[in-house]
Amino acid sequence: MSEEKLLKVSELTIHYHTVEGIIKAVRNISLEVNVGDSLCIVGESGSGKSTLGLAISLSLPKNAVVVSGSILYKGRDLLKLKTSEVGRYRGKEISMIFQDPATTFNPLFTIGEHLTDILRHHFGMSREEALERAVELLKMVRLPDQARILHAYPHELSGGMLQRAAIAAALSTNPKILIADEPTTMLDVTTQAQILDLINSLKRELNLTLILITHNLGIAGEVCSRTAVMYAGTLLEEGPTEDIILNPLHPYTAKLIKAVPIITKTQGRLSHIPGVLPDLRNPPKGCPFVDRCELATPECSASQPEYFRVGGVRRVACILYGGEHE
């Protein structure tokens, strides 16, 4: 596989307009994804992960405003598409699945109706062709008893089965990029293990480019080769997942990893991060972590730190790594 840039997000800033004020959900984020990459976006609640995912999949809610930046997909800026062109990308080149798989489906239609609808619409298949393909798709996501599932309504399937069906629906258009937003958060742990296993196999079999959004660093390690850590709307660091977990660069990432209760830990205190998340209506001008960082200097409050390259494949937005500018 050649290493072409499939996706290039540059200096993206997104606000939500609400009655309580303007929420600066995504601030100045840049990242790149190559064909076949698997990138995990990790962050705590409210860090802006979903907003970023929704922007890339052209599914932002009405009250979201893209203030600046670009999202280049194969060189084309998705933010500058004409309304008539959106359908060629959304759900087709770039598909998304969500924490609650029920959001993918209309409760009034069977799984089969849903899948054949997409297939006929996107590929102009006949009913028979679409049904045949739908069965293949259900097999691909390892759902047994496909005939029964085609006739089932969403509420008749368990959470794990429905998430598989949602993955089948998302992949039915042969998208180049799959964005999965917390796809296992609502599931039991053993079901979560199955779905992660499925995502890993599909990634390999279909050479899928994957963006996985999660709050769980352990999941990042199980699925993605690269990880980007978000905090209060900004991207703090990015690099190979293993490096980030074993040797986090950003003070926030380091704290976050120490706070995870690991299964081998038997006693002692967990370390936690004192303080609270910044108010996104009025985030700090400088480093977003400055109020909670033990290593902060006056310089940290002056302006948002720029990215510094570390070891070629990593970058981090913290002045402690100053010297080697990106």
Binding site: T190, A193, Q194, D197, G218, G221, E222, L246, I262
Partner: peptide
């Protein structure tokens, strides 16, 4: 065993040693 092995492991080295038991189906 299945429950233990289904917890996503943070440490990449520990992960390599761990045997994964994935139960088929759902309860």
């Amino acid at each position: 065993l299945a429950l233990l092995s289904s917890v996503p492991e943070l440490n990449p080295q520990a992960k390599k040693l761990k045997k994964k038991i994935i139960l088929p189906g759902e309860p």
